[in-house]
């Protein structure tokens, strides 16, 4: 380790360069997964995406605990209200639109071609930080950084 005054960069800058790269790599894994043809490659990229996302979260949390990262200022309640009202209206209009279209024509039944909905998210949730997930690992129960594999 370097003494503080010989450091190449301040701690927060060092950590930030890694954090920025984790954000970039997360996006790239997302793109790669969506563009994969081979199911095993898609699964591999999805797993890398989840793990990288977990690492980004872990580093961000560590940095904010060390006051190296100031979070953006909170949105005002009236701004949230405005967006909420606007999109509740949009939702209502869309629902009306769908009702009109659906009642105007008969639909094919989903069974006709054996449609199976995609699984809901928690079934492929990554190992989360800070608490034990589905996979067995360290039985010590103490928090070790990043158990995402």
């Amino acid at each position: 380790m370097y003494a503080q005054n010989q450091q190449f960069m301040p701690d927060e800058d060092l950590a930030y360069t890694v954090l920025a790269d984790l954000k970039r790599v997360t996006r790239e894994y997302g793109t790669a997964a969506t563009e994969s043809v081979c199911p095993s490659v898609r699964q591999q990229f999805t797993q890398l995406l989840n793990t990288t996302l977990a690492m980004q979260g872990e580093l961000y949390t560590a940095m904010s605990q060390q006051n190296m990262y100031s979070a953006a200022s909170p949105a005002l309640r009236q701004e949230i209200d405005k967006q909420m009202k606007e999109y509740q209206q949009t939702q209502q209009k869309t629902n009306q639109f769908l009702q009109q279209k659906k009642s105007a024509q008969s639909q094919p039944s989903p069974q006709a071609w054996g449609y199976q909905p995609a699984p809901q998210w928690p079934s492929y949730a990554p190992q989360n930080m800070g608490h034990a997930g589905q996979q067995p690992h360290s039985s010590t129960g103490q928090h070790t950084p990043g158990q995402y594999m």
Partner: peptide, 15 residues
């Protein structure tokens, strides 16, 4: 290796 903050060092080492 060059970080002086122990928590950040630990996270980076593991990652």
């Amino acid at each position: 290796l060059s970080c002086t903050n122990p928590q950040i060092t630990q996270v980076l080492m593991h990652q």
